[in-house]
Amino acid sequence: MSLFSRHKLSEYESSDYQQQLNEFKYKITKFEDRLDKLENDWECASQGESFRPANGIDAKEAANRVEKAAQKALPNELKKAFDEINSAVKNEQKSVRLYQYECGPSINVIGKPQRKRIYHIDTLSKELKKYGYETKFDPNDSDGPYSFLEVSWEGKGTSNVSKIDSSKKYILPLEGTDREITDSVTGKTITHEVAYACPHGGKWDIVYDRKICSDAVVVSGREIINVPKWVESIEPIEAD
Rank of each mutant, 00 (worst) to 15 (best):
A45V: 10
I225C: 00
D58N: 08
F51T: 03
K90D: 11
N76S: 14
I121P: 07
D215A: 09
I107L: 09
D36K: 12
P75N: 09
D16M: 10
P105R: 13
E238S: 10
A59Y: 08
S15T: 11
W153V: 08
E67R: 03
Q18I: 09
N160T: 00
N64Y: 04
G144Y: 02
P228F: 00
D83R: 07
Q100G: 12
D165G: 01
Y170P: 06
L3G: 15
T182D: 02
Q93D: 13
I225Y: 01
V207R: 01
P199C: 03
H192K: 14
E150C: 03
T182M: 06
D33R: 13
I118Q: 14
E154G: 07
D138R: 04
V151M: 10
E127H: 07
R210T: 13
E43P: 08
Q20P: 09
L35S: 13
D58A: 00
E13N: 15
Y99N: 06
Q20A: 15
T123F: 06
D33S: 11
R115L: 04
E223M: 02
W204M: 04
T135G: 04
H120G: 04
S5H: 14
D58K: 03
F148Y: 15
D165M: 01
A69R: 05
S50G: 11
S15K: 15
I85W: 07
T123V: 10
A62S: 11
E150L: 01
R97N: 14
G144E: 04
S159C: 08
V217W: 06
K229N: 09
S10N: 11
Q93A: 10
L124A: 08
K229H: 11
I181T: 03
K112N: 12
E13G: 14
A54F: 12
K156Q: 10
G104R: 14
